[in-house]
């Protein structure tokens, strides 16, 4: 910690417990203002609904999933709390990257044991699974696991336990991706 070499190697992250307290206070503020928690995958869902509804409105109207999210009064799908939240998340992350000097050119981060290509395939598969899983789970790590559990939802706790638990169950099989 106080030797020069490790100081150089340590990136400039918040103390995780301090970061956690900030996250908790933010979540509490969100509950206090909106009566519900944080979300990330909801914006992606609404974006998909919007695109499908633009390209094939009849198909969207006849599909019992898309149609759940299309306002009956013809209002905009994208003019929604979730969309603005996700835009904020992107720029908030960018702001932090600028502040802490992590904003950089386009790059792929991966373990030295795997190629860039492998990492990209893994990221694509992971994203695909998260897209599907978050719909079954009524939210992702933010909406279901974190916000759900913090608001004492039993379902939120289930999703959180499964998400981390299954990660551990399968960690052995995917260890080459990381260690």
């Amino acid at each position: 910690m106080n030797t020069n070499s490790s100081a150089k190697r340590k990136p400039n992250y918040l103390n995780p417990y301090f970061g956690g307290v900030l996250l908790g206070l933010l979540l509490l503020t969100t509950f206090f203002i909106a009566g519900r928690g944080l979300s990330a995958s909801g914006a992606v869902k609404l974006s998909v609904v919007t695109v499908v509804n633009k390209i094939a409105p009849e198909h969207a109207a006849n599909n019992s999933y898309y149609s759940k999210f299309i306002p009956e009064d013809g209002g905009s799908i994208m003019f929604n709390w979730l969309i603005f939240g996700a835009i904020g998340t992107f720029f908030g992350g960018m702001f932090s990257g600028v502040v802490y000097g992590r904003m950089g050119k386009l790059r792929i981060e991966h373990s030295p044991k795997i190629s860039k290509r492998t990492r990209i395939i893994a990221a694509a598969v992971g994203g695909l699974l998260f897209g599907i899983g978050s719909q079954f789970g009524r939210g992702c790590s933010s909406g279901a696991a974190l916000s759900g559990t913090a608001a004492f939802s039993f379902g939120g706790l289930l999703v959180m336990a499964l998400m981390f638990g299954i990660g551990y169950v399968f960690a052995y099989f995917f260890r080459k991706l990381w260690i």
């Binding site: 990330a40 893994a122 990221a123 694509a124 598969v125 992971g126 994203g127 695909l128 699974l129 998260f130 599907i132 899983g133 978050s134 719909q135 079954f136 789970g137 009524r138 992702c140 790590s141 933010s142 279901a144 289930l158 999703v159 959180m160 336990a161 499964l162 998400m163 981390f164 638990g165 299954i166 990660g167 169950v169 399968f170 960690a171 995917f174 991706l177 990381w178």
Partner: peptide
């Protein structure tokens, strides 16, 4: 959903 996301988590490394 939790099961699928757990798998996606350990493969993709993000949420």
């Amino acid at each position: 959903g939790g099961f699928i996301m757990g798998l996606g988590f350990v493969i993709g490394g993000f949420c």
